[in-house]
Design a protein around this nucleic acid. Sequence first.
DNA 1: GTTTTAATTTAGATTTGCCTAAAAAAATAT
DNA 2: ATATTTTTTTAGGCAAATCTAAATTAAAAC
Lengths: 220, 220
Amino acid sequence: MLNYSTSEENYIKAIYHLQKEGTVTTNELAAELSTRPASVTDMMKKLRTKKLVHYEAYKGFRLTPEGRKLALIIIRRHRLWEFFLAEKLKFSWDEVHAVAEDLEHVSSKKLIDKLDEFLGFPRYDPHGDPIPDANGKIETSKQVCLIDLPLNKAAVVCYVSDQSTEMLELLSHKKIGLGTRLEIKKKFSFDQSLEIKLRQQSATTISGDLAKNIFVKYDE
Amino acid sequence: MLNYSTSEENYIKAIYHLQKEGTVTTNELAAELSTRPASVTDMMKKLRTKKLVHYEAYKGFRLTPEGRKLALIIIRRHRLWEFFLAEKLKFSWDEVHAVAEDLEHVSSKKLIDKLDEFLGFPRYDPHGDPIPDANGKIETSKQVCLIDLPLNKAAVVCYVSDQSTEMLELLSHKKIGLGTRLEIKKKFSFDQSLEIKLRQQSATTISGDLAKNIFVKYDE
DNA sequence: GTTTTAATTTAGATTTGCCTAAAAAAATAT
DNA sequence: ATATTTTTTTAGGCAAATCTAAATTAAAAC
């Protein structure tokens, strides 16, 4: 198995999370990794020569099949360590992430597979996210209506039921489309309206009528 | 808690292990770390500015108290992970070292202390080496008579049985006292006399009669 | 369809940790 | 004591990963 630097692994993982739908942009990735756009461009060139991403100047990037495979290996490590920390070492759910960020870069496959076995092949980490198996297979989240999405749970728009011109006009005005990443910040039971936050943008409100027609998947 | 690079940590750990045999030299450390003497010199300058080693050009190096403290933290991490791998993940004793080499650089104190607790505060790693506790205390080797100290084994004088004026006079002339670091360079079976080397000084010879009254501990 | 703005890339530096080759210092041998 | 050998340090460079500032390209606005 090839060996990648911590930095490369962090880029790959970040792209995986951002690319749920559509291509990932330089600025998005720079924001996600708290780095500068110029650094992203440098790294994309390197990952392209290693055939982990598809990338053409100014056109954004996506993981290649190998890149995705690597991303799932890293996510598997991360989530198994999170499970271990919570379940065995009694860390609270909000502490596990930071420590797992370091542990996930220890690359022994045998270590991870034996850890998996020791933990009893858990299927979800302490945040409820699915853990990829030893072959990199991961449970795909089923789609739910935006109305039913839990608060603060990042999700991606994957389907819109009503395709009328009027609704599409509204969606385009709100800058919501297939692949749009969002999360719900507040739910108003009075009229079922929602305050939602789109990635990189300020919060906006949408009506219950609109939300009922939008379907999302949990963002990995 | 300060944060050190993997490279710095590996140097500190290597110096700790080598300095049991006296002052550590550039070539020794380079060999231990499979690197070049020039790289060692570079790193020693850096570790000196961080006050982790005592170092003067051409005179070798030893850890400062802070350096030793750091070394014991790293060794604690290493040995606890080795214990975990062997005991919980059923790695064989000869496989644990390589994986622990990576895990030992994850620096969360909380992680290590909780791991220690989870493992039941083990006192020895799978190779039988003692595990430092959360305060950096490590089981010290018991004291032995200087007569029985192996060749080239760095040790510290910890007790003198005969306290006669005559003997104390001899000891003070030889510049030997409690806490003096020394190692035996040669043993002469004819009269049990020893050629010993005091730190930073040239070799000297002491009689078997004197050596019988001096007790030492292995130097960590 | 220009112009203005925003996003992206390039160019040139910096830091860390390593290298080789040469110089300097210390140790050893004669 | 001097010459030779060994050890250590210095000098200069390289690759990875980052940065800033400037240039270029794409997108948005008018």
